[in-house]
Structures are given as structure tokens and as C-alpha cells.
Design a protein around this nucleic acid. Structure first.
Lengths: 154, 154
DNA sequence: TCAAATTAGTTAGCATAGCTAACTATATTC
DNA sequence: GAATATAGTTAGCTATGCTAACTAATTTGA
């Protein structure tokens, strides 16, 4: 939920930026998406795998929350990853209902390769920027990341 | 396809920005996505409808190319939009194989309402930025939009 | 001119990914 | 120890992506 704070900006200006941001994000991801198809795994699986590689093993429920998806959906995503031997599932020591999910080395490798491909593609797009422009983009990312971190609760 | 130009940046710096950009775009859209569910139409339909509202009537093939999707996929998306009375389909005067697809006024209204909801949500997220920070984000968007415009050819 | 080739779209059938509802199995609470 | 709550799964729906194979219309060219 967005913070409801008294805004110091004229609403229309904020709206315009919001709209452009949305559109840019859509178009950017549409470009990048095609780079992922060669892995043979869909976006939901890659995203979940990415989380596992980035932040270690998680239970199914934790994954579902992190990916903003319902448990049955994540259950199937994980089943697919397991079928492809990209994750392993082990019992939780303290709670027999829970299942800990870990990326396998194959999973880590696949993710790294995919990430490399995506990043290379985007990086190629960014090489036309000057050093100064790149720094400007970086600053904006700092801001965005801050916004996206707030309200991780939802 | 990205332009292949001699890069003036150290590769690692560009890669890092590319990676952060990718991640920020994913998380941003994941947030916004939930705002769209209330329309009762899925993302592919909303995206196609958006194009129709933004740039007027199109044939099915044009829509498929613009949305980077194969014709059968777009065929079904358009069928869904038609079922919901968000678009109308008319015969092409010059080529009886072609079908011109137009947004209806209901379609325009639905899209505008959805856009308003999305933008409001994002704008709420952005209100915590200062005027200066917002301006910085704006500059970065100028750069991004430039990059995304190049190679619209694909 | 009319047969062949191309082009626009559809249909059928498969996979992934989202959901809810209803279930099983384990933990927790009283 | 019985009731309740929690973690996951299963079943079954929809939407969105694909390819292959089809129909219908247009264009080519002998």
C-alpha cells in the first residue's frame, strides 16, 4: 500500500512521471523477455529461482509471499523447477509441514547464464549513454529502489 | 537488436546498472499489476486495448507485431476483447482477409479508468520524493525512453 | 486467364501461470 | 486430547504464450 503522505508536488506532475515510469518498465521488460526464452523455463520459474539463488533456501510459503503469488501457484512453479532439477526440496527440521527449497548447482548455473544474457542485452542498449548519463540513471535507480523497498509488506 | 558501438564505459559498470534496471522494472510492474485485476481483463487484453486506444484502429496482424506476439495469440486476445464489447471488428475496404479492430467507447472508458488507477497507485508511491528527486527521475526517464525508442524495429 | 504461391487469420492442441475451493497432514491452543 | 490454525497439495477453472495445420483471399506469372 502506498504511503499516504501530504504531497509536496503538484499532482499532475507526479502523475505524468508515474505514467512514463509505467510505460518504460513495460517496454523494457518486453524487450528483455525474449532473451529468456532460450532457457526453456518460463518467467515465473526463473523469478522464483532467482530469489532462491539470491537469498538462499526458502519455504514454499515464503516464496509465494515474496513472489506475490498464492501457494498453489508456487507449489506448481516449484514442482516444475524440481522436474528440471533446478531445485531440491528437503524437510524442515522444526516443522514437518514445511518444505525447504534450495537451488541446485544446475539451477545456479542456469540462472547465472540467463542473467548474463539479459544483462548483456540491456547493457548493449546502455552503451550509447555517456558516463554522465549513466550516473544520472544510477541516481534514479537509487530512488526507485528505495520506493520499491518501502512497502515490501505488500 | 542493440546497437553495437564501441563502449566508452567499463563493462562492469554498465552491467551493474543494467541489472538494477531490470530488477527495478520487474518489481515495479509486479506492484502495479495488482491494480489491474479489478478490471476483470488480463494484461494481454489491456495492453492490446491500450495500443488501440492510443494509436487508433489496427489489423490483427499489426496488433500482433506491435505486441510482439504470434497471430493466433492475438486472435484469441481480440476475441476476448470482443466478447467483453471493448472492441469492434469491421471488414477492411481493400482486402477482405484483413479485419480492422477498433476500441469501443466502453473500451476507451475501461482503459482510462484502469490507467488512472495504476497511475494513481504509482503516483502515491512517488509522493515521498522531493521535487528535486522527481526531476532526477524524470531525466532518467528521458534517457530510458530514448533507448527504448531506438530499435523499435526490434 | 487461371493455377500456383503468398498472405491474413482461425482452429486445434499443448504448456505455463494465475486463481479459488476443498482436501491432507502437522502444530498449536485450551 | 479435542478443536483450531497453519503449510502444502490437488482439482479444476481462466488467460496467455506457442506451433502445426487449416481456410480464404490476394498476388504472381506462365
Amino acid at each position: 500500500m502506498p504511503k499516504v503522505k501530504p504531497t509536496s508536488q503538484p499532482r499532475s506532475a507526479v502523475d505524468a512521471v508515474a505514467d512514463r515510469l509505467h510505460s518504460a518498465a513495460i517496454h523494457l521488460l518486453r524487450r528483455v523477455r525474449n532473451q529468456d526464452t532460450v532457457t526453456g523455463e518460463g518467467p515465473a520459474r526463473l523469478s522464483a529461482l532467482s530469489l532462491l539463488v539470491f537469498s538462499g533456501s526458502k519455504t514454499l510459503g515464503e516464496l509465494a509471499v515474496a513472489e506475490q503469488v498464492k501457494p498453489p501457484t508456487m507449489s506448481r512453479v516449484v514442482a516444475g523447477l524440481k522436474r528440471s532439477r533446478l531445485v531440491e526440496i528437503t524437510a524442515d527440521a522444526h516443522d514437518a509441514r514445511r518444505r525447504q527449497i534450495h537451488a541446485t548447482s544446475k539451477g545456479v548455473a542456469l540462472l547465472r547464464a540467463g542473467r548474463k544474457r539479459r544483462v548483456s542485452y540491456l547493457a548493449d542498449c546502455l552503451t550509447c549513454l555517456s558516463k554522465q548519463e549513466l550516473a544520472r540513471l544510477c541516481e534514479a535507480l537509487d530512488l526507485l529502489e528505495g520506493i520499491l523497498r518501502d512497502g515490501d509488506d505488500r
